[in-house]
């Protein structure tokens, strides 16, 4: 990979981290309502995958999708404005945290029902084959989705019809407060997918280079062979399921242990050790991101609320 691209992956991860830190802060200040599912800890997964695809490929996520939206190049100010419920938000303030959309950037949401994006991803893959183009779809979902019917119906059809969809299970070990091993007869998500006769893989989701390598391979093969793939990225969210979650089901030791594997400092050391970037360069990026996030908050803060008559707009086409 080019130096610029490697550094850009760092920039993306730091943007997500700082953006989410700020969103958590704004939630505490009452600027953001509803549920807020932060992506902190999982940055390497979104950045590793989304940096590996083309602008005309599609991305679809679940409800912990701010990180994916930012990695897809959506404007931080407009994503923050959406969290604030403002008119300038990516979904005009009608979606909120769980429903970020940017159709121009082929970011197809933001879906709040566990597993619900998986059939939609299959549908987009179907449309790609229908039009005989060589795009791919990346579909992100959590370990909780593995036990939904939609998971199994979608993977069966994706495999049967050779749909160009890369299903990415972000296994952060907990579906809300329930450990995956407590609810899955087979505690590895990729093994649940394996019976649908598709290529599966498990990757360290705390290592952005490992994720990127898996993503490059998956994208290349999916584009070439028109077959779906399933990749389980083992990762960890440092915050609760949502801001309302005190996280009593995890030990401090466990969280501390995973913090040792934080994808951002780890990658930062790598870039410096490999002489890809100097500490100063990375510090400059950090400050640049601070400014971007600050501006995003200011933009959201200063943006107008939706007008009352917008309540009735966009129900029907």
């Amino acid at each position: 990979m080019e130096k610029n691209e490697l550094i850009d992956m760092y920039r993306q991860m730091v943007l997500i981290r700082k953006f989410e830190d700020s969103a958590g802060e704004m939630y505490k200040r009452g600027k953001i309502g509803g549920f807020l599912h932060l992506y902190i800890g999982q940055e390497a997964v979104a950045v590793g995958f989304i940096s590996a695809i083309r602008p005309d490929d599609y991305v679809i996520g679940a409800y912990r999708e701010h990180g994916q939206a930012l990695a897809r190049g959506m404007e931080p100010g407009r994503v923050m404005a959406e969290l604030f419920g403002k008119r300038t938000g990516v979904s005009k303030g009608k979606g909120g945290s769980m429903h970020m959309f940017d159709v121009e950037k082929h970011f197809m949401g933001g879906h709040g029902i566990v597993g619900g994006g998986m059939p939609l991803a299959a549908g987009m893959g179907f449309a790609i084959n229908y039009r005989e183009t060589d795009q791919v779809v990346i579909c992100f979902f959590g370990d909780g989705a593995v036990n939904e019917g939609a998971f199994h119906e979608s993977l069966n059809i994706a495999s049967l019809w050779r749909l160009p969809v890369i299903y990415v299970c972000e296994n952060n070990l907990y579906g809300m407060g329930t450990a995956f091993e407590r609810v899955s007869s087979i505690p590895q998500a990729f093994r649940r997918a394996q019976c649908y006769d598709m290529e599966v893989e498990s990757v360290d989701g705390m290592d952005v280079l490992a994720v990127r390598e898996a993503a490059d391979r998956a994208v290349r093969l999916t584009r070439r062979d028109r077959t779906p793939r399933f990749i389980e990225a083992i990762t960890y969210r440092y915050r609760g399921h949502s801001m309302a979650d005190p996280g009593a089901y995890r030990t401090k030791e466990e969280i501390r242990e995973w913090e040792q594997r934080d994808p951002i400092p780890k990658y930062r050391h790598y870039l410096i050790d490999q002489h890809i970037a100097t500490e100063q360069e990375l510090n400059d990026i950090d400050s640049e991101i601070d400014k971007i996030v600050e501006d995003a908050v200011q933009f959201a803060e200063e943006s107008p609320e939706p007008a009352p008559e917008e309540l009735f707009e966009d129900v029907y086409a």
Binding site: F126, A127, L160
Partner: peptide, 21 residues
């Protein structure tokens, strides 16, 4: 023709419509 998977059938319809079919 599809498998007997109504949720996926409706979802595939919806997903394909999201991108213009």
């Amino acid at each position: 023709d599809t498998p007997i998977s109504e949720e996926a059938i409706a979802g595939i319809g919806t997903g394909s419509a999201m991108v213009g079919l």
